[in-house]
């Protein structure tokens, strides 16, 4: 049973927590402790807001082991509002409705299960931004 690898990354998976470079201000996801822009230490935690847009995508029909029950599903490169590009599964959307530029928001969902007696692994996915009555009213006003 693999437990520790999932436990170590719980903050990035559950909170979309990365890092910010205190030298140049670059936001990093996943956290990597050294800024790829200025090569200075970047170990200050930074929680991303979870908003972004689809940069590119592909639909998976032959899912790898552990993900079979979710297929077909769409994997996307999501450009986060703060800058980084994140690879994640899209959810609550039919593959035919995905398009480049689609506004999406982060949700926490089941990524996979390690068998019936193993761990349930949760993490970030992205879904189309929820339509809100308040936003429609503001637009009308």
């Amino acid at each position: 049973m693999r437990l520790a690898p999932h436990w170590r990354v719980r903050a990035q998976r559950l909170q979309l927590r990365g890092e910010v470079c205190q030298c140049c201000g670059e936001r990093l996801f996943p956290p990597r402790d050294v800024c790829p822009a200025c090569h200075q230490p970047a170990d200050k935690p930074f929680a991303f807001c979870g908003e972004g847009t689809v940069y590119s995508f592909s639909t998976v029909y032959e899912a790898p082991k552990g993900y079979e029950r979710f297929g077909p599903y769409t994997i996307a490169l999501v450009r986060l509002k703060e800058g980084p590009l994140v690879t994640a599964q899209l959810t609550d959307i039919d593959p035919a409705d995905v398009r480049i530029g689609l506004p999406v928001e982060m949700v926490t969902r089941v990524l996979r299960e390690e068998g019936e007696d193993g761990m349930v692994i949760y993490g970030y996915k992205f879904r189309p931004v929820l339509e809100r009555e308040a936003a429609r009213e503001e637009a009308r006003a």
Partner: peptide, 13 residues
């Protein structure tokens, strides 16, 4: 619930 949803994910949102 969708295939990737359960009590935990719903409680989180």
């Amino acid at each position: 619930p969708g295939l990737d949803e359960d009590t935990t994910t719903m409680a989180i949102e």
